[in-house]
């Protein structure tokens, strides 16, 4: 099943891959971050209208700047703002930038790797 393939890419390649998916008729269905005690990944999932679906996965760190794909896929801006608020990954060139006010959490970057994870 292609659903479960997460193709590894680098952060710089994300925009190129997004372009390719956009040209192939895919649309973005979600972006999210995931973490292990050591590493953080950002995962983009694209889906075609015939329901085939593919994901790409890149390694990121807190404080990294990733180029936004919201100019290619309009709905991306909400996901990117969400990741910025919860994981502390910055995005450059978002079409709507909430500047960290989408989710105002008591603890900043509440979902990112914390000191307790490393122990």
């Amino acid at each position: 099943m292609t659903d479960q393939t997460f193709n590894p890419v680098t952060v710089e390649e994300i925009v190129d891959h997004s372009f390719k998916y956009a040209n192939d008729g895919y649309r973005l269905i979600q972006i999210h971050c995931t973490k292990t005690p050591e590493e953080m990944f950002i995962i983009y999932t694209f889906e075609k209208l015939d329901l085939s679906c593919e994901s790409i996965k890149a390694n990121v760190q807190v404080g990294d700047t990733v180029q936004s794909i919201s100019k290619i896929f309009h709905p991306a801006f909400l996901y990117e703002n969400e990741i910025h608020d919860l994981y502390g990954v910055n995005f450059s060139g978002m079409i709507v930038d909430f500047q960290g006010t989408l989710y105002e959490t008591a603890v900043k970057q509440a979902f990112s790797i914390t000191a307790s994870d490393k122990e």
Binding site: D3, Q4, H32, T34, I43, E47
Partner: peptide, 18 residues
């Protein structure tokens, strides 16, 4: 890791578990 897509009354929902 696993990704699932379902249809909710409001539309498509995506779950991802690791």
């Amino acid at each position: 890791e696993f990704l699932t897509r379902l249809e909710q009354p409001r539309g498509q929902v995506v779950y991802y578990a690791k």
